[in-house]
């Protein structure tokens, strides 16, 4: 057993339409541990509960039952404003459709989480510039999203996810809207962030090839974890407990 447990989930259940005849349980008691510095992938077909799990991991949603500790912080009983703060400080989202604010420049998009985090204007601008350089978008900082290609947008989005130096980066099909080549470039950035910055990254995908690149893959089926596998070429030990 080594490393700092950055995510600990115990018996996470998520149900919809609670108390009605069509009550629907999407997640059936998920147990999941993620360690600091890990590059993890969650795979599963659509309808397997991937998105629901991601929403709970990303503090966008609350589980119906179970315990979730993010960076040792119990997530039960956290109020809406508290969840906002956790999303702001602890989590960096990367979405399939980029989700940049269309009328703001790349720089302002990257600075946005810092704005909500109360970082001063000059510091926001300094750090956003730095982050854009990190994803090799330094020359495009004053372009708006509609002036950028898909791959460029996703790089800006990754820079934005890094803005408040979060505990985990949560990437939901980050290459889903990109062609293979640009998808490759984006994946390379994740690898770089993982290796050079030691970021904890959770990649949600249905692409098994991309999942193979990560250290460990969790497979979801019908709301349960059916596989928890260390990927061959990574030789890190003790990063996970066997299923």
């Amino acid at each position: 057993m080594m490393g700092n447990k950055i995510i600990e989930m115990r018996g996470i259940v998520k149900s919809y339409y609670l108390g009605t005849p069509n009550e629907l349980e999407i997640l059936h008691g998920i147990d999941l541990d993620v360690y600091e510095g890990e590059f993890l992938s969650i795979v599963g077909a659509s309808g397997s509960g991937k998105s629901t799990l991601m929403n709970i991991l990303g503090a966008l949603d609350r589980p119906t039952k179970g315990h979730y500790y993010l960076d040792h912080l119990p997530m039960e009983n956290v109020k809406d404003d508290g969840l906002s703060q956790i999303r702001n400080k602890k989590i960096g989202f990367v979405f399939q459709t980029f989700n940049l604010i269309p009328r703001s420049t790349a720089l302002k998009n990257v600075a946005l989480p810092m704005l909500y985090g109360g970082v001063s204007r000059s510091e926001r601008s300094r750090r956003a510039t730095e982050l854009l350089q990190l994803v090799e978008m330094g020359g495009r900082s004053h372009h708006r999203p509609n002036e950028l290609s898909g791959g460029q947008k996703q790089r800006v989005a990754i820079a934005r996810a890094m803005a408040n130096d979060p505990a985990i980066i949560l990437a939901d099909e980050p290459t889903g809207a990109l062609d293979t080549h640009t998808g490759r470039l984006v994946m390379d950035i994740f690898h770089r962030l993982h290796q050079e910055q030691g970021k904890t990254i959770i990649l949600i995908t249905h692409n098994s090839e991309l999942a193979e690149e990560t250290q460990r893959t969790i497979r979801l089926r019908d709301g349960s974890i059916v596989e928890n596998r260390k990927n061959g070429h990574y030789q890190l030990e003790g990063c996970y407990e066997s299923v």
């Binding site: 404003d81 906002s84 702001n88 989700n99 604010i101 909500y116």
Partner: peptide
């Protein structure tokens, strides 16, 4: 709506 969703995901409080 989408922009509001993005802002909330990035940590904007309801009050903001």
């Amino acid at each position: 709506t989408k922009e509001i969703g993005i802002r909330k995901a990035l940590g904007a409080r309801n009050s903001a």
